[in-house]
């Protein structure tokens, strides 16, 4: 579903070149549920933007659903759904229902299928009570559910979410998580999400990718992640440990046979 082959992205900021992402390779198969972790500024959002066609990589190759998102932007857009936790892709002044109607037109979803899908999503995400409310009046949890529904109206095979649980209360978080898990298991939709919330990882992801300083620092199952730091049992502590020691991770070359976090990089 996703093939990232040594992708890199650098920016020129006031004459200096900053490498936001470098030499990042990973593969996500159809039906996987992958969580992407990393400290602030590690390059997670840049990676998401390269996968969704918003940013062109400066090196390497990406394929999403077999297509290059830079060259085949609209074809890739039809295959994927994108949710930004920090800002909505809906229209502030319009009632949620009208936002969905615009999304329907943009993705050319036919009316019958749209009605069926919207009915389903409305039930699963409990949108009914605020379908007529303008987006700017929605609570964060309601808005996030609306955003997720909007990203799924065209039934994409891949759903990419950038920090979908940020700022949500415990109940909303649990609802969003339950929905995403069901989406993945019942419909087989591939899900890739970035997060700072290890709860998302523990409850949802079978696989974790850890990006640090723009490089892949870990790629493996949640249990493997836990095993990287002997003695720590909670994922929260393991991740904190990894972030704190990240510079050591980066500079130490992986030794063959060692249970190193960078071994799969």
């Amino acid at each position: 579903m996703i093939d990232a082959d040594r992708i890199g992205r650098s920016f020129r900021i006031r004459g200096a070149t900053v490498h936001a992402v470098r030499d990042l390779s990973f593969h996500v198969a159809a039906g996987e549920f992958v969580g992407c972790l990393g400290p602030n500024g590690a390059g997670k959002s840049t990676t998401i933007k390269m996968l969704t066609g918003i940013l062109a990589p400066t090196s390497g190759r990406v394929a999403v659903a077999g297509l290059d998102p830079t060259r085949r932007r609209t074809a890739v857009a039809r295959e994927i759904g994108v949710v930004f936790g920090q800002r909505t892709t809906l229209w502030w002044d319009l009632p949620l229902r009208d936002s969905f109607e615009l999304v329907r037109l943009l993705y050319k979803v036919d009316r019958a299928r749209f009605r069926e899908r919207l009915g389903e999503l409305t039930e699963r995400l409990r949108l009914g009570e605020f379908l007529a409310t303008p987006v700017r009046q929605l609570s964060l949890g309601q808005r996030m559910r609306g955003d997720i529904a909007a990203a799924l109206l065209h039934d994409p095979s891949l759903l990419v979410l950038d920090e979908p649980t940020i700022g949500l209360d415990v109940v909303s978080k649990a609802e969003v998580r339950a929905f995403l898990r069901d989406l993945n298991t019942e419909r087989g939709t591939t899900v890739l999400l970035t997060t700072h919330d290890v709860g998302d990882v523990e409850r949802l992801c079978r696989r974790v990718i850890l990006i640090d300083h723009g490089r892949l620092a870990f790629d493996g199952t949640v249990d493997e992640l836990r095993a990287t730091v002997p003695g720590e049992t909670s994922i929260e502590d393991v991740v904190a440990h990894l972030y704190l020691n990240s510079s050591a991770l980066r500079t130490r070359p992986p030794r063959p046979g060692e249970d190193s976090p960078t071994a799969t990089a």
């Binding site: 933007k49 969704t52 066609g53 918003i54 609209t74 039809r78 229209w91 943009l106």
Partner: peptide, 22 residues
């Protein structure tokens, strides 16, 4: 405002989307 990013993930040309927006 960052809304241009949202337009880039839609399968329609950006000119059409901006011209029609609001």
């Amino acid at each position: 405002a960052g809304t241009f990013d949202a337009m880039l993930v839609r399968p329609v040309g950006t000119f059409v989307q901006i011209a029609a927006d609001r």
